[in-house]
Design a binder for these strands. Sequence first.
DNA 1: TAGCCGCACTCACATATGTTTATGCTTGAG
DNA 2: CTCAAGCATAAACATATGTGAGTGCGGCTA
Lengths: 242, 242
Amino acid sequence: MTRMTTPLILKLEQRDQLSDDEKRALDNAISRVRVVEADEDIVREGDRPNESSLLLDGFAARYKLVSNGRRQISALHVAGDFLDLHSFLLKTMDYGVLALTTCRIATVPHATLEKITDEFPHLTRMLWLNTLIDGAIHREWLTAMGRLSATAHMAHLICELYLRLKVVGRAEGDSVQLPITQAELGDTLGLSTVHVNRVLQELRKEGLIRFQGDALTILDWERLKKVGEFTPTYLSLQNEDR
Amino acid sequence: MTRMTTPLILKLEQRDQLSDDEKRALDNAISRVRVVEADEDIVREGDRPNESSLLLDGFAARYKLVSNGRRQISALHVAGDFLDLHSFLLKTMDYGVLALTTCRIATVPHATLEKITDEFPHLTRMLWLNTLIDGAIHREWLTAMGRLSATAHMAHLICELYLRLKVVGRAEGDSVQLPITQAELGDTLGLSTVHVNRVLQELRKEGLIRFQGDALTILDWERLKKVGEFTPTYLSLQNEDR
DNA sequence: TAGCCGCACTCACATATGTTTATGCTTGAG
DNA sequence: CTCAAGCATAAACATATGTGAGTGCGGCTA
């Protein structure tokens, strides 16, 4: 059975089983679907939305602006990710969300989320878990940014994105489509565009990846993991009772 | 009425009202209290605890180790903070927690948390909120680390810690006790100890702070905020229906 | 009271990464 | 078919921050 929420369900079922009732509740939670074009804002910092956005297709980034026009991307999102489940409880957006490509987005009213917390304790825990994984990724990025070299940090990010895309069925063998510019990668890693370019060349020269246009191929997973000091524990890919 | 959970309740009630039932449920959730000495681990990376730790008193840090013995601190915790509420759903600790000072710690069994999610939907949302604020702080740190100068980053951290300590009644006027070494600050900001020293001197020379021993005093809040590009929105200090 | 140890602090020097500017693809619009 | 725009790439140079080694203070501990 194909549902609107297929990528989200894939993501959650990787971590724990969902009952049919729960899956139905998720599907029914969607009030509408919209399309946002690349480079448009999906939500803006400071907004107080009364619904949360679930990314069905495309790539999006959470970001903050800083003085002198600099930008930091604090999360990259793929199909199946909630972009601002936080706003359900945080109320005010502490970051903006930008479409990196054309995005298909499902909308879930906060009132519906509240009803889920009243009626579906286990599903509530799974949505909570979803935000906890976001947090775990943030911690991992902090560590990579603070204590790894630029090259290692890039390798780490590539490992993570590859696995996350694979979970939602967006990998083909060792390859994924990664429609992200080097400037955007720089804003993600806290690097200049020029240095992103240097670092990518190095990973290519070492025979670890191929990256032409949008097509990213992992050529040597083991060595890439090692260079990026990547251990996937923080992604909670295990299926367990939660 | 004085409760074990006073600092936690202060923290939560800053964000939304709690009923007496909910406060009682929190207090009853504590199964025991223990003391951990400075420099000891409270939880270790890779552990699978069946209880979560609530910090009643003292300072603690979440950290990860990286090759060549480097360390990154991804969170600093004060009284009222949960140190690993995450482990309730993430199961495996993706980071360790270290006592920076002697810490008094209350223990909440995961089974009790699960019962709370079954019986107290609003309290569940407040605990969820608590982890969402952790996440918002992570995003803010990512932005500061990636796009601010070392000096601005330090100023930002000081602003944040001052406000968080104030919320739980640990500030006296413009001063707080901050028993953190410069090496630990370096591991927090992703800087070397030497550079932490340089940056602190600069903030002192500019007349923004005094920092002698453990005693930190904010001398010019407005300018410190400006230097650190600090806006407290992400701390969700507003009281709202959640 | 002596001595040790952790910590703040300094200096000289090293380097990873940033900045500026420029070139040439590739692609989409007209 | 042509042009403009966006993007990856490059080289030369600038600088924020790291490294390594050392000093001295203050507070425990014997």
